[in-house]
Amino acid sequence: MKGVTNQYKPNRLLQSFLAAWTDTDLIMKCAVVAVFGLVCCLLGGISAHSIGMKHKQKAGVVLSPPLGNALHRQRVNELARAAQQLDKDTETRLLNLPKNHTDMTNLFVCCLHVNIIDFYLRNVLNTEEKYPHLTVVKQDLHRISTDLKEQGCAVTHVRNQQYVQKFKEEYIKLGTNGQRKAIGEVDILFEYLSRFCKEKKTQ
């Protein structure tokens, strides 16, 4: 009987080892499942947060994508800066908001500047002088003008408005320097468009 008992000892050891291995494997599987579940929860939370942010940003967004794009604004600023460095006239300014702009709706002020965009496209940005980003900025302004007209800017209604007329008269008065002055103020134009050409905030 003693021999028989010794004969079964290796089998018991093997069974114990297999049982321990199975338990370890089970623990590892549980750990993997737990980690996977945690990652899913985190990703789910991030997605929900992102969706929430998108909904928050809808209110008061600009009516044309280039107006809310940092790269577009940087190119406009670099173009304006290059023209400003060549402009010796630091007294004159073409673009000044109407004094009574607070009595106007944002859309009306926006449309005033869409009319000025069209003037830029026809008379200002067709210069033969070399400026950084000139072609790209011209494309951006064309896109902005198109978008804002689709949003309701009927530029024919504001074409003869005093503010627009004064801008054109001052531009012509400056002669050959008018084009350079206007390019140097394209950043101001872009700023006004970004400020006034927005959707109304929803509650």
Rank of each mutant, 00 (worst) to 15 (best):
H55Q: 11
T22Q: 14
G44F: 11
K130C: 06
R195A: 01
I117Q: 02
V136A: 05
K138Q: 10
K54Y: 12
I188K: 02
R143N: 06
I172G: 10
E191Y: 02
E91F: 14
I172A: 12
L134T: 02
G175C: 08
P65T: 05
E129T: 07
D187E: 03
I51V: 13
G152L: 08
F167L: 06
C40I: 13
A31C: 12
A80L: 01
Y120I: 01
H113G: 02
E170Q: 12
F119D: 01
A182C: 07
T102P: 05
H101C: 08
N177Y: 09
R81S: 07
Y8S: 04
Q57P: 10
H113N: 05
Y131I: 01
P66S: 04
E185V: 05
C110H: 03
I117C: 06
V76F: 00
K168V: 07
V76H: 00
N115S: 15
K166L: 12
Y163C: 09
I172F: 15
I116W: 05
Y120T: 01
A80P: 00
H101G: 04
N69Q: 04
G37C: 07
E150L: 14
I117D: 01
E91Q: 15
T24C: 15
L79N: 00
F17H: 13
T24K: 14
I172S: 13
N11Q: 11
I172E: 13
D23I: 15
F36K: 12
E170F: 11
D89I: 05
A182K: 05
Q15M: 10
L86S: 08
D25S: 12
R93Y: 09
S16P: 08
Y163G: 07
C110N: 02
V4E: 06
E199N: 09
A19L: 13
K99H: 14
K149A: 04
K200I: 08
L107K: 10
E128F: 12
E199Q: 09
G37V: 04
G3W: 13
R73E: 01
H113A: 03
Y131P: 00
R93Q: 09
P66N: 04
L95K: 04
V164P: 05
R159E: 08
F190H: 04
Q74W: 03
K29P: 06
S16E: 09
L95V: 06
E78N: 03
P65F: 08
L43H: 14
K2S: 11
P98L: 07
K201D: 02
R93I: 07
L67T: 00
A48S: 11
A59S: 14
M53D: 15
F167T: 01
